[in-house]
């Protein structure tokens, strides 16, 4: 620590302390409010934000959803009453604006940034009703019951999303996506709004506390180590069978070929 002692009377010392202090406060603040920084508190809708949202909506969404979000037959549903949560889910996962009309819109890099997304969400919310974007506290997994979350996930979600959220196929080209990238807010919004083929799990069927348990399970299991070695994708016995044939059996057959390659010379 002698270098601090030696420099404590340096002309710049005071500024350095000030900068360090600001950094510290900033970091702590950021840590405390991290949830809202990542997923953001529901934007307090004001006329300016709504107007900005409407401008963005007309530019990026109206082609399909109509100038007043009234929707278009066979192409895009009406967005009146879907709520900010639905918009935030669709736009923040990059599913909207859609690249093409298909069975399922894949997750991709979002086109709009967070401020823009919230503005569009505020505009749609202003058209009437629908669930708002959940707050950081609502999606916080602090104190959540992972064990209960596991049971709930297996009972309600795994039949489509697989037991660890690795995803699965649905009918007619639709699929339940892998939950490897979904943020807590997005998982919450998905349960609340039921995007694509997913059913709506409102707060009566799965209470907000249970939703947090499920989020805790999903976010924990995807980072859980595989004590048995390589995970083989954690999609069940199909990849295990593949390894049994292409790994084990092939190895043993090659060994057999090697062992029998050298034939013993006949007596004659």
């Amino acid at each position: 620590m002698s270098w601090i002692t030696a420099r404590r009377r340096h002309p710049a010392a005071g500024y350095a302390i000030l900068v360090l202090g600001l950094l510290l406060i900033g970091t702590v603040y950021a840590a405390i409010t991290e949830g809202s920084a990542g997923a953001s508190a529901p934007p307090v809708a004001n006329a300016k934000q709504i107007a900005y949202g409407r401008k963005l909506f007309v530019a990026t969404c109206a082609t399909c959803h109509g100038e007043y979000a009234q929707g278009q037959a066979d192409t895009a549903p009406s967005l009146i009453g879907v709520g900010a949560a639905a918009v935030d889910f669709q736009v923040s996962t990059g599913r909207m604006p859609a690249a093409e009309l298909g069975a399922e819109n894949p997750r991709k890099t979002p086109r709009l940034n967070e401020r823009q997304t919230h503005a569009v969400a505020a505009y749609i919310q202003s058209l009437g009703g629908g669930p708002p974007i959940p707050s950081a506290a609502e999606v916080s997994t602090t104190g959540a019951n992972v064990g209960l979350g596991q049971r709930l996930f297996v009972a309600e979600c795994a039949q489509c999303h697989n037991f660890v959220g690795a995803g699965g196929a649905l009918t007619y080209g639709k699929y339940a996506p892998a939950l490897t990238q979904a943020t807590p807010t997005q998982i919450y919004e998905a349960m609340l709004t039921g995007p694509e083929a997913m059913p709506v799990f409102n707060n009566a069927t799965i209470t907000p506390a249970e939703k947090r348990d499920i989020i805790a399970y999903v976010t924990r299991v995807r980072s859980e180590a595989n004590p048995g070695g390589f995970s083989l994708g954690r999609i069940g016995p199909v990849t295990e069978g593949l390894v049994a044939f292409l790994g084990l059996l092939l190895f043993c057959v090659l060994a057999a070929m090697w062992i029998t390659a050298k034939q013993r010379k006949a007596h004659d």
Binding site: Q150, R151, V154, A155, A158, Q159, C160, H161, N162, F163, V164, A166, G167, G168, A169, A176, V221, E224, N226, P227, G228, G229, F230, S231, L232, R234, I235, G236, P237, V238, E240, G241, V243, A244, F245, G247, L248
Partner: peptide, 29 residues
């Protein structure tokens, strides 16, 4: 294989519950 490739990780499947089911439920090959 036993050392490096995880097989049948029952802990992530969870205990059996007749009302639950998972996508990708296959038997052994």
């Amino acid at each position: 294989a036993g050392t490096f490739a995880q097989i049948n990780p029952v802990w992530i499947y969870g205990p059996y519950n007749p009302v639950a089911m998972s996508a990708g439920s296959q038997p052994d090959f």
